[in-house]
Every structure is written in structure tokens, then in C-alpha cells.
Amino acid sequence: MLKTTLKNKLQQKANLIRQDVIKMTGEAGSGHPGGSLSAADIITVLYFHHMNHKPKDPKWEGRDRFVLSKGHACPALYAALAECGYFDRKELINLRKMGSILQGHPDSRRTPGVEISTGSLGLGLPAAAGMALAGKIDKASHKVYTLIGDGESQEGIVWEGAMFAAHHKLDNMVAFLDNNGLQIDGLVNEIVKIEPIAEKWQAFGWETFEIDGHDIDDIVRSLEKADAVKGKPAMIIAKTIKGKGVSFMENEVDWHGVAPNLKQVRQALKELENNN
């Protein structure tokens, strides 16, 4: 078990990120709050606890890398990057605005801390595999983490990357699956189901872990275990709730790509502040 103080700190960070996601998408008038909220705890643990990185030196060679393959959850990533100090928190309000360093989907050329441009679904996982492979070639000790969506797993390129990573025994790579069960058109299970998930990834040669993606303890422990896997990449299948933390967004498919209005922002922030 994590020390209570650490756990509290991480929960507070995750809550702050959720508030930022609401403020940012509300201000932008567009964006993807649902999937950002479902990924918030995983991103928090990576950036504020697990990963070895230097926000003031984003290109530091020894850093662990994170690739947000489900790029539409970038409000959560941007909030974490800003809170870490990659750039000024004042930038957050410019999400999706003309000329902003915070594009609608992650842009490595504009945003300090974004390793590679993503957003077109599926491209992040093979790119993370390429980074892990580069680490192997260079005999480097850093790790590469990536986060994919459950709907995203319908993309064929995900499985091309999955095969490649397993074939090359990329045990310096750990992926998360943000298994929130929803995609734009409805339930993943009703569109094109991706289950059985663990068996699929195992069959593709990956070690798998199944966790509660909103339990800080669970996330921390699974990362420690996944890092220790030898000879193959690891997939942490995280059961999550789309819209987690905001009652009227939770498990509501329509909050995939719709921003809250001012009234909804206020209500959401009130709920999140009360949770703090």
C-alpha cells in the first residue's frame, strides 16, 4: 500500500487535472472531456509519481517517454504537463485556440513535453514501440509508456504495433488500455467488440495486468509489476469510467466529444472541489 500522504497527494493532483479538463474544454467550447477524465488517474500517476523526467529539460535523453495514443484525451495530458512545469499553466486556457501551443490533438512541434504527434487513432502504439526499440538499440535504461483507448483498439495498426513489440521483446515498453467501454457511436461492445481483451493481448505475446484505472494504489502497483516484466511488453488493462468524477458525464456516451457549457462547468467544478 502507498503511504496515505502520497496517495492523497496523487488523488489531489488527479482532481486538479480533472478540474483543468473541465475548465479547458469549457473555455474552448469543444474537446473531449469524457475520455480525458477516464484517463486522468493513469496520467497523474505517470507524471507525478512513476516516470523519470525533467520538465525543465524536456529533451533530456534519459527521460522516460509517454505517448498519448488516444490523443483526444490531451486536455488531461496538457494539464499534467503544465502542472509539472513543462510550460506555464496560463497556456491551458488557450486549448484549441488559433495559434495555441495546445492543439486539439497532441503536437510535438508545438507543445513542450509532447514526444510525438498523435490524434489519428492507432498511430501512437507503434510509435511507442519504435521509441522502445531505439532504447534497446542504444542500450538505454529509460521506459516508454503509452495509453490507448478501447475504441482505438479497433484500428488495425494497433495490432501491427502489438505484434512488432512482442516480436522484438520490448520489455521497456508498457501500455495502458483506458477501458471505459464507450466510443463515439455507443458502447464498444455494441459497435465492434474488442473482448476478450486480456486474452487478445496475451495471444499477441504481451504480459497483461487488469486493474481499476481509478485506484491510485492499483495503478502504481501495476506499473511496478509491468516495469519488472522481462522479455515482453506489458499491457495494463485499466477498467475506467468515461467522464469519471463528474456525475452527469459518467458513462454518458454523449460526453465523448462535447464541451460543457458555463452552467455545466460550474456544476462539474463544484462536484470535483467537494471530492477534494
Binding site: 507503434p126 511507442a128 514501440a129 521509441m131 542504444d138 512488432f164
Partner: peptide
């Protein structure tokens, strides 16, 4: 995709 990751590294 893999090539992009390698090049980014």
C-alpha cells in the same frame, strides 16, 4: 509508426 518512434528518438 515504428519508424516515427525511432526517428523521434
Amino acid at each position: 509508426g515504428v519508424a516515427a518512434g525511432l526517428a523521434a528518438s
